[in-house]
């Protein structure tokens, strides 16, 4: 290609700003090393690393509440340790434990009496043998004692029996991770003894920019592929809260862990080598090979990973090949450079 042809090509290129595809014959590129790469399609695009936390949604953990304030509160498992249902996880001791057991016993007796009285008077009431007022008192007494007993009974179901009247052992109600709570005396007449978090409730939580959050499809962290479950529909300033689906067993992530994760967006795009991209007059192009010609094809860069760009194009690039060597020289040709 002589200099005049190149100049003409350059002028055409610049004037039209490549509104129509500009074509360069490969034979005009002399001895320039011309190597081509397959353009592959991609469906996801990674965003920059974000901070994330292994956590759980509010309300998904089993709360362990003691109906009294024990003098001593010993955790028998490690915080965050996975425990099977029935495993002793806490040891409560002190006079309050004793008082609790006594209260439990008395509540149980009272409930037993009240129930017996209630059951025996129910028939009489149905036969209208006792007055309404009398029945009301019996019923009230029965339900109150049942509530009181129920209150103690739920907790007592978690208790392992112990020979020592001042000590009780608390067992895990379900399979899950035991999570410590502190301080113990946060509640007025009760004690927060921790939580048991079911495995299926352990998720990854991250805050993603509002513009990208809706298109997110998964996170990647330490080789762990984590699908998105829900994106909060309320914005927290610049971000939206994103929850993943429960973590898979093979994801070796610890509850409470803060980590960096790569969010991936859904995208219909192509992957091309970074060295295949050129820009002229603020527009970006690649050189797609068609037979013995290079088609100057406009693209939009959506993102980058390692040595590749993720790009979109108005042209269909499936099964195409793109020039990835000597691209800057071809750019020079398009700009009218070349010659002595």
């Amino acid at each position: 290609m002589n200099k005049n042809t190149m100049m003409l090509l350059a002028l055409t290129f610049l004037c039209l700003s490549v509104s129509a595809d500009t074509v360069i014959k490969t034979e005009d590129l002399g001895q320039l090393a011309l190597e081509y790469a397959e353009i592959s399609t991609v469906s996801s695009l990674n965003l920059p690393l974000v901070k994330a936390k292994i956590s759980h949604k509010s309300g998904e953990a089993f709360q362990l509440i003691a109906p009294f304030k024990p003098q001593s509160h010993e955790v028998l498992v490690n915080n965050g340790e996975f425990v099977d249902a029935g495993t002793a996880i806490l040891k409560l001791s002190g006079s309050e434990v004793h008082h609790f057991l006594e209260k439990y016993d008395s509540a149980k007796s009272l409930f037993s009496l009240a129930k017996k009285r209630y059951d025996s008077n129910l028939k009489l009431f149905n036969e209208k043998s006792i007055s309404n007022d009398k029945w009301a008192v019996i019923s009230e007494n029965y339900f109150r004692s049942r509530d009181e007993f129920g209150h103690y009974q739920h907790f007592s179901e978690l208790i392992h029996s112990s020979p020592d009247v001042d000590v009780i052992l608390i067992k895990a109600p379900i399979d899950g991770y035991y999570l410590n709570s502190e301080p113990v005396n946060k509640l007025a007449d009760e004690s927060d003894l921790g939580q048991i978090l079911p495995k299926a409730s352990v998720r990854l939580r991250a805050y993603i920019g509002s513009a990208e959050a809706e298109q997110l499809i998964y996170f990647e962290a330490g080789g762990c592929h984590i699908e998105i479950d829900v994106v909060s529909q309320t914005s927290m300033g610049y971000f939206q809260e994103v929850w993943s689906k429960p973590l898979a067993d093979d994801c070796e992530l610890k509850y409470g862990q803060i980590l960096r994760v790569t969010p991936y967006q859904t995208v219909a795009a192509y992957q091309v080598p970074k060295s295949s991209v050129l820009s002229i007059k603020r527009a970006t192009y690649i050189l797609v090979k068609k037979a013995e010609e290079l088609i100057v094809t406009p693209i939009t860069i959506k993102g980058a990973e390692a040595n590749y760009y993720i790009v979109t194009s108005t042209s269909t690039l499936d099964n195409s090949r793109v020039l990835f060597t000597s691209v800057a020289a071809v750019q020079g040709v398009l700009m009218g450079l070349g010659g002595e």
Binding site: Q31, L32, V330, G332, L337, G338
Partner: peptide
Amino acid sequence: IREILIQYPGINFGF
């Protein structure tokens, strides 16, 4: 040299 360089379009050269 000139003959070689002319085979590399898109690059200006001078001696």
